[in-house]
């Protein structure tokens, strides 16, 4: 869901960007290890090592006998645990991701349970650097959210013009409340009912994570990472790729404001985010070579 947190965790550890990590959205969660591992916790800040709170986006060495505990974060919905070498579950259809709806991939195609033992892949060459972190992305990216709101940038979708002028105005100007119908597949928002200028029956077609659809109920629905691959509801907008991680941190009760941007602005934001992760990789490599951090 928070793809930026997973990327940052992998960058902090020198893992390839596609290495698998653990997404934690049910708290508290306690993790121990049978062997020493370099571990990063990113995303919503929630981590305690043997009872001591850790800074956000932090890398530590987890030794056997130590307890890493993730407690319910005060802001955000999901934390990410990455390990040097990645979680080495088997590839299914080319991916280590969990597809919970179809029971595929990940660890036995299901949510993790108490007592699960996860395999870790061979760690990338490490200088032994540990106990360092990165600035959380909200502090470094040009576009940030106000404290009481989740600000999300959206490009108008293929059926934007099919909605009434009042519905279009409400979408861009109102606050939207994340309802309790929110999971990895998508989240339904509540607010003004959005109506079409005339009834429209669309042919079923491909959709992507980030699309804002409006079913006949009038409540917009944002498809998230486990989005349906096809659908037939009018597509009012599409969340820009660079803000999907923010949407992935929303929880029921979060208030969202949408900001209309152009595709050029969306691509610039995507590049900024990519540069941030690349710079983090470079900084980590440089930091790890400093004298005094090599064991």
């Amino acid at each position: 869901m928070d793809n930026l947190a997973l990327s940052m965790g992998n960058a902090l550890l020198g893992n390839p960007d596609h290495a698998a990590g653990i997404e934690v959205q049910t708290f508290p969660m306690r993790l121990t290890t049978t062997q020493p591992h370099l571990v990063a916790v990113t995303g919503a800040a929630s981590a305690f090592l043997d009872g001591t709170p850790l800074p956000p986006c932090w890398v530590m060495r987890l030794e056997p006998g130590q307890d890493l505990v993730l407690k319910r974060p005060t802001t955000g919905a999901r934390s990410y645990i990455t390990v040097a070498g990645g979680i080495d579950v088997p590839l299914v259809l080319g991916s280590r991701a969990s597809d919970l709806r179809n029971g595929l991939g990940g660890h036995e195609g299901r949510d993790l349970r108490d007592g699960d033992l996860l395999p870790v892949g061979p760690a990338p060459h490490s200088t032994g650097a540990q106990d360092f972190g990165a600035q959380p992305p909200d502090e470094t990216l040009a576009f940030t959210s106000a404290s009481d709101f989740l600000d999300i940038r959206v490009v108008p979708g293929p059926e934007h013009g099919v909605f009434t002028a009042a519905a279009q105005a409400a979408f861009w100007q109102d606050d939207w409340l994340v309802s309790t119908m929110a999971d990895r597949m998508g989240m339904r928002l509540s607010g003004e009912k959005l109506t079409l200028a005339q009834p429209t029956e669309l042919r079923s077609g491909g959709i992507l994570p980030g699309v804002v659809q409006v079913p006949p109920s009038g409540d917009p629905l944002i498809q998230l990472r486990d989005a349906n691959s096809a659908g037939g509801y009018p597509r009012l907008g599409v969340v820009i790729q660079a803000d999907m991680w923010r949407a992935g941190q929303a929880r029921p009760g979060t208030r969202i404001r949408f900001h209309r941007v152009t595709t050029a602005q969306a691509i610039a934001a995507r590049n900024e985010q990519r540069d941030l992760v690349a710079a983090l990789r470079r900084d980590v490599a440089r930091y790890a070579e400093l004298p005094g951090f090599t064991r």
Binding site: V155, G157, P158, G206, V238, I240, Q241, T263, I267, R270
Partner: peptide, 17 residues
């Protein structure tokens, strides 16, 4: 042909399905 976010397009065939 319509823009679908910054990295996708959607093409609808003209006429009947």
């Amino acid at each position: 042909i319509a823009q679908f976010g910054e990295a996708a397009l959607v093409l609808d065939a003209p006429g009947a399905m």
